[in-house]
């Protein structure tokens, strides 16, 4: 198979584009797609300070690599989740990546800082471990970005992540959640701007890019993720894609182009105030993170919070957490 651009030996076939590329041309295509995403949504500029949420996996390290190669001021933040050897290996890979590139990496250990890790959250809390993991990441990345004076938090969400989220919310017609799904979540008081520069690229493409760049990422899957709702939606999307190459792209990028403007009109404006415990913005008395943390640690918040309104929780969580995870549906029902 020959490269569509230069005629050299192809190493990556992209059926959704009916094209194939050699190693060099593919990396060029990949970088162009990231640049297009950054430009189209005015994610950040060359002078902005970017905090990249890194996990040691292919997506976040590929993103960090592209941004560093592009000359951006991109620094990494790794969150230690306490998931045994999986977390240890993820951290080691992230440190090695940063050292090889002379990039700045900061690490936050969830257990040291907040008194719980993700396995404990899965056993003690009312939410699934995946939901608490996502909630903790968003909360701590945002806080670190605020404290560090960063302009933007960049995450490695790819096209498959976004299409799976959109599929899950569409199956339930969760109009408010759909309305919040976007490549850029703008800054509001207390919340740093959040961007997803890989949203035009599939998992296959981020994995191929990471491999071709020699990035030693963690291949193994998180041991807690089995049965995750998002994984099931990804598998469903892949089944459609196998028969109709490009369907995933048309579904998500078509939503951004033609669906998002319509759903935006369904978005409810909410008034945010400071969480009574930590000060981060929330529509309620306490933010979702502080409520989850108190549940896990068996602490009582004073004054006692009113009964949790799932709609308030949903507003605080970013769009990639699906409703079943937000509401803490028992594992056997998921």
């Amino acid at each position: 198979m020959r490269c569509t651009r230069c005629g050299g030996r192809a190493v990556v076939e992209l059926r959704r584009h009916n094209a194939a590329f050699c190693a060099d041309c593919f990396q060029g295509v990949f970088r162009n797609q990231v640049a297009r995403a950054i430009d189209e949504y005015e994610m950040f500029g060359p002078d902005d300070r970017i905090l990249v949420a890194v996990s040691g996996g292919k997506d976040s390290l590929a993103l960090w690599d592209v941004l560093l190669e592009g000359g951006y001021h991109a620094e990494g933040l790794y969150l230690g989740l306490g998931i045994g050897e999986y977390s240890d290996r993820s951290h080691d890979r992230t440190i090695a990546f940063a050292e090889q590139r002379g990039a700045s990496l900061r690490t936050i250990d969830l257990a040291s800082e907040q008194g719980f890790d993700i396995p404990l959250a899965g056993r003690k809390g009312a939410r699934s471990s995946c939901a608490v993991c996502g909630l903790s990441k968003r909360y701590l990345f945002n806080r670190a970005a605020l404290e560090g004076g960063y302009d933007v938090v960049a995450t490695g969400h790819n096209l498959d992540d976004e299409a799976a989220t959109l599929l899950g919310n569409t199956l339930r017609w969760n109009v408010e959640y759909i309305a919040r799904q976007a490549p850029v979540l703008p800054a509001v008081e207390g919340l740093v701007r959040k961007v997803k520069p890989l949203h035009r690229l599939t998992e296959l493409e981020t994995a191929a890019y990471a491999f071709l760049r020699g990035i030693d990422y963690v291949v193994e899957e998180c041991p807690l993720v089995a049965g995750n709702t998002q994984l099931r939606y990804k598998e469903s999307m892949n089944a459609i894609e196998a028969r109709s190459p490009g369907a995933k792209t048309q579904f998500f990028l078509g939503y951004l182009d033609r669906g998002m403007p319509i759903f935006r009109s369904a978005r409810e404006e909410v008034t945010l105030s400071a969480c009574a415990r930590c000060g981060q913005p929330t529509p309620g008395t306490y933010c979702a993170f502080c409520r989850a943390r108190a549940q896990i640690l068996g602490e009582h918040l004073t004054p006692a919070p009113p009964a949790e309104d799932p709609r308030d929780v949903a507003r605080e969580l970013s769009e990639e957490v699906l409703p079943g995870e937000i509401y803490g549906v028992p594992a056997e029902a998921r």
Binding site: G57, T155, V225, N228, K234
Partner: peptide
């Protein structure tokens, strides 16, 4: 044969 699907969001 290396899988590319990741389940957890960053």
């Amino acid at each position: 044969v290396r899988p590319v699907i990741s389940g957890g969001a960053v």
